[in-house]
Amino acid sequence: MTLALGFLDMASVIAFVALALGQLLSMVRLVLGPTPGDRILALDTMVINALGLIIVLGIHLGVQIYFEVALLVAMLGFVSTVALARFLLRGDIIE
């Protein structure tokens, strides 16, 4: 069991590093991104990565409480992506 727990610890550390690297790389696209569509896409990816970080944190600590946070982040990320895209499409969010 100690071997398996050690493997799980290592895997969660690797997942943390991969997701943080993903955040940094999508931030590069957010800064570079030649078009507004790319910037919205990079922000959407960052929200998805933040969601993944919260889930991995919950697994690492062995707590259930973070799932409400993850659900709220998923909902807010979707709404903000749609609001940004709609603002660029119509010049207005609620017509």
Binding site: F7, A11, I14, I48, G52, V56
Partner: peptide, 14 residues
């Protein structure tokens, strides 16, 4: 072990 492997596959896809 299954948890650890799912974590690794998921972070690789991301």
């Amino acid at each position: 072990y299954a948890t650890a492997i799912c974590l690794l596959i998921g972070s690789a896809f991301i």
